[in-house]
Every structure is written in structure tokens, then in C-alpha cells.
Deep mutational scan, measured.
Amino acid sequence: MPSETPQAEVGPTGCPHRSGPHSAKGSLEKGSPEDKEAKEPLWIRPDAPSRCTWQLGRPASESPHHHTAPAKSPKILPDILKKIGDTPMVRINKIGKKFGLKCELLAKCEFFNAGGSVKDRISLRMIEDAERDGTLKPGDTIIEPTSGNTGIGLALAAAVRGYRCIIVMPEKMSSEKVDVLRALGAEIVRTPTNARFDSPESHVGVAWRLKNEIPNSHILDQYRNASNPLAHYDTTADEILQQCDGKLDMLVASVGTGGTITGIARKLKEKCPGCRIIGVDPEGSILAEPEELNQTEQTTYEVEGIGYDFIPTVLDRTVVDKWFKSNDEEAFTFARMLIAQEGLLCGGSAGSTVAVAVKAAQELQEGQRCVVILPDSVRNYMTKFLSDRWMLQKGFLKEEDLTEKKPWWWHLRVQELGLSAPLTVLPTITCGHTIEILREKGFDQAPVVDEAGVILGMVTLGNMLSSLLAGKVQPSDQVGKVIYKQFKQIRLTDTLGRLSHILEMDHFALVV
């Protein structure tokens, strides 16, 4: 994948999101292997301009796509893939009243899908469409860049269908997702969380590099694949309309690839034109409109599966009536509230959605109805927002919020430890010299600072030695090549209790 991002070429006709291997024109390309080798690009942008032909009021008969309808489940399912879809609609009884809503608040519980998330729908649909058009064949390999849930859905379907599955996901995604993927037989590649989507090191860039190296491999490409919004247009939206008897006044959905909100909203605009569509985008993402909503100094966020630093091709923002931004604290607070007060075992993005819903639905009156999409299960986040310690460490809970008995030293300040200034190293000294210094002084790690004293990161003896043994660096290389740029900081005025929580999850903390 090139470091400079080429513009994806656009073909003359058809839909841009065809499933299957992508040609340089962004659509299915038939021909000899030699032709494909000559024409197939190194990668295709996940934010390529959409060429979708959908228009409100256009006859369904003019759609270029294969459409399906929700099917009634048999008493005995032939395999677990038949437990994807037909998820329950559940009334939220307490939270709406707590925040003064007059309307009825309903939750579409997508964590009841077989793999635990709304992404099971698009995973199965992308595979079925690729099999139907002859792209996927027995023994082929599926590769997908994902925040985890699409990966789980694909790995689940691949396990049943017999495909090899490789999932490329950023490091910030939970260990629970990784464990589930491994249990399903998927191979996992992790990428830096802070890598831009168009960087060769991003999950998108690495996935395309693997595709170019592995024979008979395919990126189904949830960011561009029409099967993504079509899955929701054909099934999720129809289920909502049936469950609500066609009567709903507002739908609120958090947005990642945009397939969920695009597919549902398009069908609702056709069948229930008075329904307002509300999009939820986390602070630090750029999906919301108008652009002024996205202006923030924050560039990272903890909530998973929603928000991006690019506009995915499948996201149709014209069908969203209003956007709201959400933050991590309210997302996790509301997710825990949904679990504790409503018994809905949902993930953090569901918290984002409901946090926005109780604001947006203030305009609705008694007798009206708001539906929220709860995308995934708490299963993926047992060591994250479900953990009091994690919430404390991230600053989303305060010590006084917890009532468990603490040891005698818990409320003492870090400054009472009488710490001395640490050994520091410059980023320009060599790895070999740094190892000598650390061994001589008896230290395992040291902060790396520039000549102005600005902290650049941390270097550890173990990481340097393993990097040297693996051949990633040489003793003569500058130590700046092996620094940890993500590390926890703590102030002298913070409590030892807070430091204790940090050290339970990290090997060190830097006192500043």
C-alpha cells in the first residue's frame, strides 16, 4: 500500500459497493488471473465517493441489488447463522422517566444476534452475496479491517462455511474481542490505534497488504460494500417497522461504517417519512454534520465500534436529520445504567446512543415513540467499562463513588512517597548505550525526554532486548525507535489509591 493515498477510480455505471474482489474501477472485475494482476490496485480507499443510485421515491424494481426479506425461524435451526436477525424490541421503562421523557422509549437489542452484535447481519450478508456472485469459493481466505464486531461476525460465518479468516484490528480494541476471535479460529493482526486510516500501518493498510500477498484472499470491505446497508434496509428496518406496527417518530443510532443508519433510515424514509433520524458520533470522530460539531482538541476516545477519521463510502449522511456528539463518560455511564436499571447487557456504544436519545427525544410528546439501536453486548468489555477499576483509572468514576473498604494508605498523596527525580535518556542515544546505562543503574525503564525536557515516551529494558533479539533494531539504532509513546501519567497530588489502580493494569506510571 502506498504512503500517498491515490484516488480510487470510478467506473461508468453500476453501484460502487459490489461485493467481491475490487477492480481499479471499484466494481467486480472478471477475466484471467493475468488481467486481474495487471488491473487490481494495491488498495482502494474506504472513503471513495459513493456511486449508489438510491433515491427517495425511486421504484424498488430499479435497484441493481439482490434483495432479501426477513424469514421466520424454524423450530430447529440448521446452523447458528440462522440465529442472525429477528432481534427483540424491548421497552426501556426507567431511564426515559428518569430523564423526563414523555414518549415511549424502545430498544432494538442487536446483541441477541448469534455473534453478539449488529455486525453479524452485514457479515453474513457480505459472505452470502460474495458466494452468490462467485467471488468467494471453498478454501478462500477472508481478510477484514475491523474494530472487532464485524470480525467476530465474519469469523463466526467463516467457521460454519469453512473459510480461512484473518482479522486486522487496532490495538485499542478489547482483549475479549481478541479472545472470541481466536476461539472462532480467526487469525488476528493488531495495528497502532493512532495510525491514520490511509497510513500503511493502519488496520485498513495492513489488511490490503495481506490481501496482495495471500492468494485467493478477499477483503469484503464493510466500508464500501453495498451488502452492509442492504442488510439493514432489507431486514433490520423491516423488523423495526413490523415490531412497531409502522408507528415510530424517531430513530437514534450510533454511527461507525454508517451501514446501520443508512440502511434503516432509507427504508424508514420510504415507509415512515415523518420519522426523524438521529445520528450519534463520538467526540474525536469526524462523521457528524455540520462540520463545526467535529471541532475539538480530542483525537482519541475509548468507546469502541463507532466514529472514524474518514467518511466511509457506505455512509449516506443525507438521510440523517440531526447529529449529536457523545463523550466517553456519558457513554459508559449510560451503558452501566442500562445494565443495572433495565437488565440490558449492552456495550458502550449503546450507552452513547441512549445518552443522546434522552436529549433528542425531549421534543417528542406522549403517545409518540423513539427507537434506539443497541449494537453489541457487554461480553466484549468485561475488563473495560464493566470494571470499576478501569473506570477509575480512566477518570470516568471517582473514588467516592465506590463504597468498598480501602487499605490505610489509600488516600495518601503520591508526594508522600518522597520520590527522587528519575533517570532520563535522550532519544538520540543508541539502544546499546541505553541498555548499558539501565543495567549500570539497576533500572528496568526510563523516560525519554528531548533537550527541552519534554517527555516523549518510555523505554524499557525488556522491550529493547526483545527488539534486538527479533532483529527489529540494532544496538547502533537510536533509542527513539523503541519508545512507548502511550503511558499513564500521575500527579504528586493524586492518591496512592489512584496509582494502585493504574499499576494493576500497566507496568509503570510516570509522575509529573
Rank of each mutant, 00 (worst) to 15 (best):
V252L: 09
G258R: 01
P273C: 14
L106N: 15
N212H: 01
P200W: 10
P2I: 10
G274L: 07
L28R: 01
D133L: 15
T235D: 08
L220C: 05
E201R: 14
K36Q: 13
T135R: 08
S254M: 05
R266Y: 09
N212Q: 09
K247S: 01
V252D: 10
Y163A: 01
N228M: 05
L136G: 04
P16M: 07
V160I: 05
F197V: 04
H232F: 05
N212Y: 04
L105W: 01
G153F: 05
V10C: 15
A207V: 01
I240R: 01
D79V: 14
C15H: 10
A69I: 05
P59R: 01
L56R: 12
A159P: 04
E104R: 03
T13V: 14
K247H: 15
G115E: 07
E176P: 01
E187F: 01
N225V: 01
H22A: 01
K39I: 04
I122F: 04
P41D: 01
S254F: 03
L105N: 01
D249V: 03
P145I: 04
G148I: 01
P88L: 05
A186L: 04
T5D: 03
S217W: 01
A60S: 11
A71F: 09
G274M: 15
L184V: 04
T257A: 08
I142Y: 01
S3D: 01
G20I: 12
D35T: 11
K269Y: 15
D245Q: 10
A186G: 06
R164Q: 04
S227T: 15
H67W: 06
T68L: 09
S63I: 12
P49L: 07
T260I: 09
L241W: 10
D140N: 01
Q242S: 11
K30S: 01
Y223N: 01
E110S: 05
S3I: 01
G162W: 01
C272T: 08
D238C: 07
C272L: 10
G11K: 08
P138C: 09
L106D: 01
K25F: 08
N149M: 01
L241I: 01
V206A: 08
T141A: 08
L251R: 01
H203A: 11
P41S: 11
R58V: 08
D221G: 07
E37R: 06
S174V: 01
E270S: 05
K271R: 11
I240P: 01
L241K: 05
A24L: 11
Q7M: 05
A155G: 08
T135G: 01
A253Q: 09
E144H: 04
T257L: 04
S147P: 03
V204D: 06
S174K: 01
L124H: 09
S61E: 15
Q7D: 07
P21V: 05
R196N: 10
L184W: 05
D249L: 01
I76K: 15
K119L: 04
R224D: 04
P59T: 15
K137F: 10
T262W: 04
G31S: 11
K98G: 11
K211V: 14
K271I: 10
R125A: 15
S254G: 05
D179T: 11
E62P: 15
P64F: 12
L230F: 13
G205Q: 15
P145F: 05
G246T: 15
A237L: 01
R196S: 08
E176Y: 01
S63D: 09
S32T: 06
I219P: 01
P64R: 06
P74G: 10
V160F: 01
D234I: 01
P49Y: 01
S3H: 08
E62S: 14
L156G: 01
A130E: 01
G258W: 01
A107L: 01
T235Q: 15
K267H: 07
Q222I: 04
L101W: 06
V180K: 01
T146A: 05
G151R: 01
H66W: 08
V10H: 01
T236M: 12
C15N: 01
P16N: 06
K82T: 01
T260F: 01
L56C: 15
T135E: 01
R45G: 13
S63L: 04
G20Y: 01
E62W: 05
P33E: 15
A8V: 13
L268F: 15
F99P: 01
A195D: 01
G256T: 01
A231T: 15
R121G: 04
L154R: 01
T87S: 07
P138Q: 07
E171I: 10
I143G: 05
E239G: 10
S73L: 10
V168I: 09
P6L: 12
S202E: 06
E144T: 06
L77S: 03
E34R: 01
A38D: 09
E171L: 03
S123G: 05
I214C: 06
C272A: 12
F99I: 11
D249A: 14
V206W: 04
G153C: 06
E40C: 01
G148S: 01
V204S: 05
Q242K: 15
T235I: 10
T87C: 01
A186T: 10
Y223W: 01
Y163T: 01
F111C: 01
P74S: 10
P41F: 01
A157I: 06
D245R: 01
G148A: 08
E128I: 14
L220R: 04
G185R: 13
G263D: 01
A207D: 05
I219N: 07
